[in-house]
Design a protein around this nucleic acid. Structure first.
Length: 567
RNA sequence: CGGGGUGUAGCUCAGUAUGGUUAGAGUACCUGGUUUGGGACCAGGGGGCCGAAGGUUCGAGUCCUUUCACCCCGACCA
């Protein structure tokens, strides 16, 4: 491509609202333009990068035996009602009616559509397993789209769906897909981590997220210092502490503790480690048609993890409550404890099961219980893992310590089981002629988010640095002075030579100054720029490496071979 | 969905407290000239329903009302 003909509107200034490097540089370098909140146009350079990522995804999907399909973007609302997700997804589903007044939904993900496609068409265990995928635009009417391509309302996702006759076969496919996803991210040149995750609105038994490590990531992940364990903070677990602080041994008693409403005040009052205190977090738990206040109890040194709390109560939502609401129930904020009190449902963190020498609220203004043995609650209360892990906690699989880092969720793979096949009545006949719902898996990967992720990990103050597998063009030939006929001739010759060798090459033939064209090349981020300039009189050109920003002189005769070596 | 902010040239922004010729700068763009190794310089030029609608006024980018859009913090979210 000749730069003089290319539609690459670069700019010195970033959009005023852009904060992330990926957003700033993709906009400045002429890859994307914004249309409306969370909606972007992909310009020629972006389109080329997207196609490259898609090609890699396609290659790896073919290797694991998945088949590409493309399902309708507009999906009948009836299907969403059938699975029950029309409520669960809520306003994120963009709904509209056609001229015949039928309700439709723009597809935010395609479990229902895919199940509908397969049910009654695959009806025998002999035709399983089956893995179908597509790469397609999705639409989710996010409450607050932001960060450019990172969180758009319209985005490109690769979504795969597998169908199995047994959970063992699903496990096998899940592992194969995880391996394929790792391969894709590795080929793209990304630093990533596979972590355990919460299954969210998609549902299902087990799920893992593929996180690209980046400070700008919106997710916090806990990773082990010794082993491979990593988990989203929403799902991270830990081992019980090996070393515990000295226990405040005491007989059970009610103790006057005026004005000690917070854990800090309580720990200070008794001069004990917050580890031995019981913290109460009251929340309103919302179900489909009702809601109730639930008291969550964790150790004073821990915090409630709301996603875990949501899962423990099987609720749709969890919202804050006011002190007034608690007082109406007869509870005493600051002094709420799990003993002798049945005014609201209790959920106690499993780390408190059997704990002794604890201090907790006595449900009476100004009083706490001391010397509490939590095991007396064993049979009467619901225990669940609801505490958020802290940095420095012990890994659940080894004796390593957990630390936090930020990640961009670029992939999420789920073992769905029969979550969708059952309600949608998608069944097959097994060896015994018995009807069974499909055992399913679903595997998503954000293609447009990957474009942004590559730049989050590969950029500097001058702009984008594309990896070899993602670069829109591998080589940029820069003719320093377009009025110098010898430079033009040498540039054109190399341009033709590289094109004939099927190298993706840009020829910067614009009538601009050296500095202007270099800045432009650095902003766009071509891996290599060949500078045809003042050294040509000695028969030399320079090879500029974008990643290292170094220039190497070499003879015109050698440049082609040298490039072929690098690419 | 709560709280806040901003809408003026393709882009980044002045101008609005105190209404008053023809609405500005930088950048980008066009023409001519000079320049040609790190976003050059000189001269000339095109480009605006001042987000939209209504109102106040002799007169509105500026004041009032309504509305829309976009952004930020939070809630939410593969």
């Amino acid at each position: 491509m000749r730069r003089s003909r290319a539609f690459i509107p670069t700019s010195k200034e970033a959009p005023s609202d852009a904060t992330l490097p990926s957003h700033i540089f993709l906009a400045r370098a002429g890859f994307i333009t914004q249309v409306a909140a969370g909606l972007y146009n992909y310009l020629p350079l972006a389109k080329r990068v997207i196609r490259k990522i898609e090609n890699i995804v396609n290659e790896e999907m073919v290797k694991v035996g998945a088949q590409e399909v493309e399902l309708s973007f507009v999906t009948p609302a009836d299907l969403w009602a059938e699975s029950g997700r029309i409520e669960k997804f809520g306003k994120e589903l963009l709904r509209f009616k056609d001229r015949k007044n039928n309700l439709f939904v723009l597809g935010p993900t395609h479990e229902e559509m895919m199940v509908d496609l397969v049910r009654n068409r695959v009806t025998s265990y002999k035709n399983l397993p089956l893995n179908l995928y597509q790469i397609k635009t999705k639409f989710r009417d996010e409450a607050r789209p932001r960060f450019g391509l990172m969180r758009g309302r319209e985005f490109i996702m690769k979504d795969a769906y597998s169908f199995h006759a047994s959970t063992e076969d699903l496990d096998r496919e899940f592992e194969a897909m995880e391996a394929a996803y790792k391969k894709i991210l590795t080929r793209l040149g990304l630093d990533f981590r596979v972590v355990e995750a919460d299954s969210g609105a998609i549902g299902g038994s087990g799920s893992k997220e593929l996180m690209v490590i980046a400070d700008s990531g919106e997710d916090t992940i806990a990773i082990c210092s010794k082993c491979e364990y990593g988990a989203n903070i929403e799902a991270a677990s830990r081992s019980a502490r090996a070393l515990v602080p000295e226990a405040p041994v005491a007989d059970f008693n009610k103790f006057l503790t005026p004005d000690t409403k917070t854990i800090d005040e309580l720990a200070e009052f008794f001069k004990v480690d917050p580890y031995y205190t019981v913290k109460c977090v009251a929340k309103r738990v919302v179900y489909e048609d009702e809601s109730e206040i639930v008291l969550f109890f964790v150790r004073g040194c821990d915090n409630l993890q709301e996603v875990k709390a949501l899962n423990a109560t099987e609720a749709l939502d969890i919202v804050d409550v006011t002190e007034e609401e608690l007082k109406e129930l007869g509870l005493e904020p600051g002094f709420i404890g799990p003993l002798d009190q049945v005014k609201a449902k209790h959920v106690i963190d499993s780390d408190l099961k059997g704990a002794t020498n604890m201090i907790c609220g006595a449900n009476e203004d100004g009083y706490h219980f001391i010397g509490v043995d939590m095991s007396i609650l064993d049979d009467v209360v619901y225990f669940a893992d609801i505490a958020e892990v802290n940095e420095g906690d012990i890994c659940p699989y080894c004796d390593g310590k957990l630390s936090f880092t930020k990640g961009i969720e670029v992939g999420h793979i789920f073992k769905l089981g029969t979550t969708y096949s059952k309600p949608l009545k998608a069944e097959f006949l097994d060896e015994n002629g018995k009807s069974q719902p499909f055992i399913m898996g679903t595997y998503g990967m954000g293609i447009s988010r990957l474009v942004a992720s590559v730049i989050e990990q590969h950029h500097d103050e001058s702009g984008c640095i594309w990896t070899k597998e993602t670069a829109p063009y591998m080589v940029n030939i820069m003719i320093s002075n377009i009025k110098d006929e010898a430079q033009v001739e040498a540039g054109e010759a190399l341009y033709e030579q590289l094109q004939n060798a099927n190298i993706e090459v840009m020829l910067d033939d614009r009538k601009e100054r050296f500095g202007f064209k270099m800045k432009d090349a650095e902003l766009i981020g071509f891996p290599y720029t060949v500078i045809v300039g003042k050294e040509l009189v000695d028969g030399n050109v320079q090879l500029f490496d974008r990643a290292t920003k170094t220039k190497e002189s070499m003879s015109v005769a050698d440049i082609f071979d040298k490039l072929m070596e690098f690419i």
